[in-house]
């Protein structure tokens, strides 16, 4: 008799489906990471795991812990918020790093630098006074 047996069925079925959806999408993202050709294509693959992959698991966690403890347990929502806010920063920086390196090597098919290349102080997420 584990703690999972005490979860009512109406909460168990959606939680199970959400967990499977989230982990399945994360796996699909990494399959894309392995199978896709070219860095810029691969840059799209992990966003499956960071959007609905994370959301599914976080929602399942909220449902399960809330029914187990008979009160709203929302701390996992913070993980979802954290992932949503940090993923743009990391992927944007990685994309810019790749552009920078490709331009330095004059790789074909990469758009040329714009007339006013943004410096790191002008990244829109870092609000300089």
């Amino acid at each position: 008799m584990s703690h999972l047996d005490t979860v009512p069925l109406w909460a168990a079925i959606p939680a199970a489906l959400l967990v499977l959806l989230g982990s399945g999408l994360t796996l699909l993202g990494t399959i894309g990471l392995v199978r896709l050709n070219g860095f810029y294509d691969r840059l799209h693959a992990p966003t499956l795991g960071t959007s609905w992959g994370t959301l599914g698991i976080v929602l399942a966690s909220v449902i399960l812990f809330s029914t187990l403890e008979h009160r709203p347990v929302l701390h996992d929502v913070l993980i979802g918020l954290f992932v949503t806010v940090t993923t743009p920063v990391t992927l944007m920086l990685l994309g810019r790093a790749a552009l920078h390196r490709d331009r330095a090597e004059q790789a074909p098919g990469v758009p040329p630098a714009m007339l006013h290349p943004p410096t790191s102080e002008q990244v829109p997420l870092e609000q300089s006074p």
Partner: peptide
Amino acid sequence: MSGTILTLALDVAQITLALAAVL
């Protein structure tokens, strides 16, 4: 009943995510 469903789903999810980590 709900324990069986959840145990199965969570085990499958753990294996899926471990596989994703390997990839």
